[in-house]
Write a protein that binds this DNA or RNA. Sequence first.
RNA 1: GCGGGGGUAGCCGAGCCUGGUCAAAGGCGCUGGAGUUAAGUUCCAGUACGUAACGUUUCGUGGGUUCAAAUCCCACCCCCCGCACCA
Length: 959
Amino acid sequence: MSVGNYDPEEIELNWQQRWKENSVFHSEVDTKRPKFYCLEMFPYPSGHMHMGHVRNYSIGDSMARFKRLSGYNVLYPMGYDSFGMPAENAAKKIGRHPHDVTWSNIESIRADLIRMGFSYDWRRELATSDSSYYHWNQWIFLKFHEMGLVERRTAPVNWCDPCDTVLANEQVKNNRCWRCAAEVRQKDMAQWFLKMTEYADELLDELEHIGFPENVKAMQRNWIGRSHGADIHFPIKGSNEIIKAFTTRPDTIFGVTFVTLAPEHPLCETLVENTEFEAAFRELADECARMSEFDRINMLREKKGVFLGRYALNPLTGDEVPIYAGNFVVASYGTGAVMAVPGHDQRDHDFAKKYDISIRQVLSEEEGEEPKATGRAFEGLGWMVKSGRDGFDGLFGDDAKQAVIQTLENEGNGKGTVQYRLKDWLLSRQRFWGTPIPFIHCDECGVVPVPEEDLPVQLPLDVVFTEDSAGNPLATHETFVNTKCPICGADAKRETDTMDTFYDSSWYFLRFTDAMNETAPFSKVNADYWMENGVDLYIGGIEHAVMHLLYARFFTKALRDAGLNDVSEPFSQLVCQGMVNAPTPFCTQCNIEFHVDKSGQKCPQCNEYLTSRSAKMSKSLGNTVSPGDMIERFGADTVRLFILFGSNPEAGMDWSDSAVEANHRQMIQIFGTLDLLNSIVEESGPMDSWLAAKARSNFSKWVRSMNEVRIREGVMVSHFDMLSDLQWAIRRGGVGKNTLQDYMERWGYMLYPATPHLAEEWNQQIGRNCMLAETTINNSYTFTSPLEDENDVKVLAAEKALRNLIDNARNVKGLAERHSESPVTKLVIQTSPEWKNKLMIEAIELHSHDFDFMRQGQSFIQSHPLFQEETMRGELMQFWRGVTVGNKKSRGRVFSLSEGERMLLTSEFDESAYILEAADFIARTIGVDEVVAYTAGDKADIAGKARFAAPLQPGLAFL
RNA sequence: GCGGGGGUAGCCGAGCCUGGUCAAAGGCGCUGGAGUUAAGUUCCAGUACGUAACGUUUCGUGGGUUCAAAUCCCACCCCCCGCACCA
């Protein structure tokens, strides 16, 4: 094969075939080896793979391959989150069954994944819409039911009209459906819930111990929204009813001047019925009921309330306070009732002003002082004052809260409680394309579970979908709906609601550990092995920070309590990959992005010329890049290299055509170095030890980066530094074939995780007859010891010094030429004189014993034998200062020497001899005819540069 | 409003945790040179300002700590993301 020709398609298809034939990515439980479970959030199969997928899976694949190489037993599976509405809607449009739509989409995305060369264990491939998967959804649901985690209850729920279904709280953003963005409305319905709130504390507290990014943890904390406070009972005057109000600030109870109820609060009706206040209340309640989002936003400014005509009694003082209904009180949070303290809550303050209710300050900002009159509510913690009862004044913060709670509890008027924002998970959906909820409605026996042996309850395939069919086709499907009661045998109806698709993805990572199991969702042995400490690396988008990641955590804990697995947290390390952005026309004036059609044109709104900025790839902006096109042009490896080198996984990255091309050139160049294997025939070369040392140091740097999922840094070493170091070695005098062979072998491993096809081809061409996919890095390559040996450090430092010398010489040459009438032809290098080297070594020695140069350096040098020589004192002192003190910008040399430089100097490295060896190279490189080098003082001091000579910093003179 | 993350040279983007080896990696772009029949590719060098090797001004703005700050501390400005009438 012609080595110089890099033909990605040929190479890639060939190796993909070989991997498949040899089943190299299959993995089994093996307790003798450490495991690594690498997982990406599986895709919804909507057609072809997009750049976001490419990025997600390129990251995962490179880590899976790296870990295999490092000797881990790696589980790396892939599947499809294939239930859901888009398939159902598409089916309606084309008059086919969602099953068909889903399968053809799966086929195309699978082909894309294969073409990228991702190293999945394809035996474990699953699709959640397969009955072999959702069978276990149902099985688990029955388990949860036994455990008392399932509840069917009638409740006000979020209804989305376009989607024709209810939604969970997590799926409603700004009162809009997360999928279709339509407004949701409240509707009372009998629905199925999973009692996620029973795990609220564990879900919150365990966040402290898992490797999620801070923002994800913050979002989950926020969502769970635990707040500590008290339920306080306010009796209603002239009634047996009491109002229970939740507050986080029981310490302000003496400042309560009114109580506000949500308009939906059942007490409102009772209180106003047949009174003069009824009409006003109804108006407010109606307004809230048909509240649209637009109105809600307006209401942020306008807080409204109506007096309900009755009074409540402050349980600690007996004071009468008016009862209001307020449009800002949320029925579903806390108790739907608020004790209002206008003195210490700005919202209550505004409300009190508006309705002329009295304001009472009962906390002081300063101990022992009267509260200040600021015209605003003081919302911080303070010292209690003017309490309506003895024993409270002077208490602060938590003490104050506790004292109030204690008193309330003693008197039976309330208790300390914890509130959560988290609600139980509403998981029933009135749609077809989901897991049927395995229950049966019997007139006699009620709602009864389908017996385990009758599972799965399968979705019928003989359903006709048409554009104008509405509702859930299951509800009208006779053979599906009509059944017998499993208890009494009478005619009964099946439940026709299906499960939220987030249910499917809440345990798929467990199913993957034992995906072929036909008798159970998974075996405990498999789950416990692969899931020990959770999935080791989980990669996906930030958009699932609350929904999927919270549900999955809940499931893992619930299944643990069901005895199915030991692990409590599903994911030990989460990486949320950044967006792939692309250039997009943009108007800086209007701050709007436009479709790429508009590039170069003027802004339709302000008529300014559009500029360009980076925006998330999206169909609506037309700035998407098709992975398929890129693979066709450059090959999968180049696309992977671009994606991985473009930025570290978490950061956003910009698509750039020129960068992709640059990366493709890089691939060609790397591949081209294989030619050296033919052209180099010498046994050894002058750069052998340097290149070998460089290989070792690059390798350990690469391993460190990859281990910490800093893939970009790893790739920089493997795909850039390795090439330029090799080029340097060749230019500097060359290497022998043995060294080259070792270098290429090591390099092959390093190329493998990011660009596996190229690496396999490489490995073969350098004459190794094993597949990298089946290789683990052998022990001499030491994954564990990052430090190269002492000799390597010195070798690298010497070469580094030479490169510095060359850089410096080039710079000085430019200056010299400006000062010289004829062109410069000769470089005289005067290296550091012996006495400076000796002194430097002494300084290094002193420094290693923490010598205090600031205090004792002066007296040390003055008592030094060299100091006795009067003619030398000036230069001696200057050098000593430079070595041990430095100037205001940089510290003394002795502090800033690298480890290698220190080693070089203390080993009495012969600088001028080293430079002389490279004299020809230096002359060629900087463009002079002759280079001479000697220790300053040995020969004539040319141009007075001898005094500039310092260890590893020779004085240069151009002639 | 609350919470999270940011602001680094023409652009993208490392460095910040663990202060000095930082005029600050790497890529892109640009400039010059080598080479080439030629476009491209490739290789070398340069890319804040001045300069016989040194100095000056730079890492959002202003202060502080330190012998020394892109890095630590404080204040402010700006950007992005999430939640939000949550009691």
